[in-house]
Design a protein around this nucleic acid. Structure first.
Length: 421
RNA sequence: GGAGAGAUGGCCGAGUGGACGAAGGCGCUCCCCUGCUAAGGGAGUAUAGGGCUUUAAAACCUUAUCGAGGGUUCGAAUCCCUCUCUCUCCGCCA
């Protein structure tokens, strides 16, 4: 959520910045809402103040044994109008909140211009794709030939976009998870968390999956009126730990890592990546989340991205880092780096991590604050997150990049301790 | 699943219709005193909005918030209803 105060004083400039992501800020609608809000709120609060004053006076009068009847009558008269005002105001506020909740974040100045994927800017390339002296197979062919990756079985159990892994591939999946968690906790200073995989609507609003992206989520058929969803990413339960909290400056930066499954309905992705494990309804991810002081979030974004990259470096998988252009970024992000791993079967780099700085956009919505040590005032935190990494896609990358002519695969050296013979 | 108790500020805890954003204590901050990390004295100490002013803030005025939502009332932390969560006992269980 953007700062309503800034929006009021600087709407035109903000609209211009939002235009960079192809978003048209409805200035007229905003100003109409805002002027009605101001008028209605001022009026309502004046009525409330008058009522509160009168009620106190009634109390005084009664305590002194005076006749409170005249006061009662005057209060009675404005009662109806106050009730109408309050009703109108809360309706307007709801409208205003909904409007505001749909406005995306302002792209940082360093974010490249552009309207889609084509305009993203490659920042660096690490590692060299291996030259194969035999025809490469993709991970699905390799896995199925080994009898350890079974899409048909998963389709029987559930449906499309699920997988059953067996034997060494199931173990590789587990080993990758363990490896990632160990690196981030031991070498990068993250605190490991175990969190719920089901969250309520308030949490989804906090991180911005609602109201806009509800169709991507799996909803649970709960009891009466309960609105529970499966998490699409650990970002939701982890970042929401900060909701309605005021941290001490000494607790910062907060650095959390959590391994969770992620559930996405992939609405609108029909026909895309239907083959293999690239795009599933259920996948696992090791997620990095940070909460930092406002002045330090861009430094933190570089670090967090480097932490995710470290996994690929250790696994010796070729990758590149891409700065998303304004038009390709998610609505909550002020700046995003995608990390893309080389997939020999596709002869291209594919996203394996997405690292974003949300600045105070999420923090404002969820009231995630810290106390400034000098001013003693509360200030909004900056939040960041990134995959470190998507486990399923990492497995795909290992399988494809380390494949042998005989259809088997070699384990990356860094993984050997996790895959004893 | 059954029975009962409860939810108040950073923490403990008082408050069953009016001067309560909330006693008291602890903690914390600042000041004073004190010749030595102890003790004492004083002051301050919730959050989020809005108005006004402003470069911005502070100050000032004001609204809302005592688990959440609704209701009764001129007035609700206090009364009523619904929900959520916590605790105790019983049952069941990975």
């Amino acid at each position: 959520m953007l700062d309503p105060k800034r929006l009021r004083t600087d709407a035109a400039a903000i609209a211009a910045q939002l235009a960079r992501r192809g978003y048209t800020f409805d200035l007229a609608a905003f100003e109409r809402l805002e002027s009605r809000r101001k008028q209605l709120q001022t009026e309502t609060e004046a009525l409330q103040a008058a009522r509160n004053k009168a009620s106190k006076d009634i109390g005084f009068a009664k305590a002194k044994g005076q006749d409170a009847r005249p006061l009662l009558e005057t209060v009675e008269q404005s009662k109806q109008r106050l009730a109408e005002n309050e009703l109108a105001l809360s309706a307007l506020q709801a409208e205003f909140d909904d409007f505001l909740a749909r406005v995306p974040n302002i792209p940082h100045d360093s974010v490249p211009d552009g309207k889609d994927e084509q305009d993203n800017v490659e920042i660096r390339r690490v590692g060299t794709p291996r030259q194969f002296d035999f025809p490469v197979k993709d991970h699905a062919d390799l896995g199925e030939a080994l009898g350890q990756m079974d899409f048909a079985a998963a389709a029987k159990l559930t449906g499309a976009r699920f997988v059953v892994l067996k034997k060494d591939l199931a173990r590789l999946h587990r080993a990758l998870t363990q490896f990632m968690l160990d690196v981030h906790t031991r070498e990068h200073g993250y605190e490991e968390l175990y969190v719920p995989y089901i969250v309520n609507a308030a949490s989804l609003r906090g991180t911005g999956q609602l109201p806009k992206f509800g169709e991507d989520l799996f909803a649970l058929k709960g009891e009466d009126g309960q609105d529970w969803r499966l998490i699409p990413t650990a970002e939701v339960p982890v970042t929401n730990l900060l909701r309605d909290e005021i941290l001490d400056a000494g607790e910062l930066p907060k650095k959390w890592v959590a391994h969770t499954p992620c559930f996405r309905s992939e609405a609108g992705a029909a026909g895309r990546d239907t083959r293999g494990m690239i795009r599933q309804h259920q996948f696992e991810k090791v997620e990095l989340v940070q909460a930092v002081e406002p002045g330090k979030s861009y430094e933190a974004l570089e670090q967090l991205t480097a932490h995710a990259e470290a996994i690929l470096k250790k696994l010796e998988l070729p990758y590149r880092v891409v700065a998303l252009c304004a038009g390709d970024m998610g609505a909550n992000a002020a700046k995003t780096y995608d990390i893309e791993v080389w997939l020999p079967s596709q002869q291209r780099y594919r996203e394996i991590s997405s690292c974003s700085n949300f600045e105070d956009f999420q923090a404002r919505r969820m009231l995630a604050r810290y106390r400034h040590p000098e001013t003693k005032k509360t200030e909004l935190l900056h939040t960041l997150n990134g995959s470190g990494l998507a486990v399923g896609r990492t497995l795909v990358a290992v399988l494809e990049n380390y494949q042998r002519a005989d259809g088997g695969w070699d384990a990356p050296a860094a993984l050997k301790p996790y895959l004893p013979d």
